[in-house]
């Protein structure tokens, strides 16, 4: 950053605000992780204390790993999230490319139709979706979830990506055409790398709601072998007793992959932003 343009008072104020916000945002996560390592009693006695020799316990993690098929749930969530993101990005980018690159009859109408999905929540169609899944025999499969999440993520993906693709230089695409590249090569090799920051944004926006979703797993795939992590963790929350150790441990474990995926995508985000600015 440019030193000459930095005003120390402004910088201090900005950093104070940012640090405060970070603390507030991270506090719940901190509480969850800290308490997941404590005995049940000490969770309630001193929720904010760090675990010490007395209160330290791995009972929550033991319960989680023993009871239910935690690794299977984990794997299911991972498959659903990664596959959905892959299809959202692939089909979203392809549709966005077609909308922004080719002039055809009904282009604008098609764009509006796709954008409509942003305004109408997919859950309104839950009953119809369930009927559809029953008829096609997809109930209790991961595929059902992947299809639904892909549909849910596409409108926003198309909207954001087509905006970015309009900004990719026409000359570059035309140079590719003159050099004999196919439209697919132009799309995958020239355009996609240039909209990588936008792809990362779309991925981050979609990843967290999909990973955390309880609604569709509960309705479309409640069977033991296709349970997602969020749904699987619900067994510890009962109507009368809740195994808080287990809930907190399960949540702590569930946070991890989200953080890993986020780090992967956000590095793309940062790289994209700086590479564009410095040219």
């Amino acid at each position: 950053m440019n030193k000459a343009r930095q005003n120390p008072v402004n910088a201090l104020a900005a950093h104070t605000v940012l640090i405060l916000y970070t603390l507030i945002a991270l506090f719940p996560v901190f509480v969850i992780i800290v308490n997941s390592f404590k005995t049940r009693k000490s969770i309630f006695r001193e929720p904010l204390a760090l675990p010490d020799a007395d209160s330290f316990s791995l009972i929550g993690y033991q319960t989680v790993l023993k009871q239910g098929d935690f690794f299977l749930y984990f794997q299911n969530s991972m498959i659903v999230t990664v596959a959905s993101l892959f299809f959202i990005l692939l089909f979203g980018a392809m549709a966005a490319f077609a909308l922004s690159e080719y002039r055809f009859r009904g282009n604008t109408l098609m764009g509006l139709y796709l954008a409509l999905g942003i305004m109408i929540p997919i859950r309104i169609g839950t009953v119809a979706i369930l009927e559809l899944m029953v008829q096609t025999g997809l109930v209790n499969t991961l595929l059902a979830l992947i299809l639904v999440y892909t549909a849910q993520g596409l409108p926003l993906a198309v909207f954001i990506l087509s905006e970015f693709m309009r900004q990719v230089s026409d000359d570059l695409k035309n140079a590719g055409r003159i050099d004999g590249l196919s439209e697919y090569t132009i799309f995958f090799r020239l355009v996609l790398p240039l909209v990588r920051p936008a792809m990362a944004t779309v991925a981050v926006f979609n990843m967290i709601p999909i990973w955390n979703d309880l609604w569709f797993p509960l309705i479309l795939a409640p069977a033991e072998e296709v349970k997602t992590l969020t749904l699987g963790s619900q067994v510890f929350i009962g109507q009368f007793v809740t195994d808080w150790n287990a809930v907190l441990s399960a949540l702590s474990l569930a946070i991890l992959p989200v953080i890993v995926l986020y780090v992967v995508f956000s590095r793309q985000l940062i790289r994209g932003i700086t590479s564009g600015a410095v040219k």
Binding site: S169, D171, A175, P193, L194
Partner: peptide, 20 residues
């Protein structure tokens, strides 16, 4: 005929080099 078969080559104002 598609551009690549026409026996032409083009130089653009914005260079349009492949960045990768």
């Amino acid at each position: 005929m598609p551009p690549s078969k026409r026996g032409i080559a083009m130089v653009f104002q914005s260079y349009a080099l492949y960045p990768h």
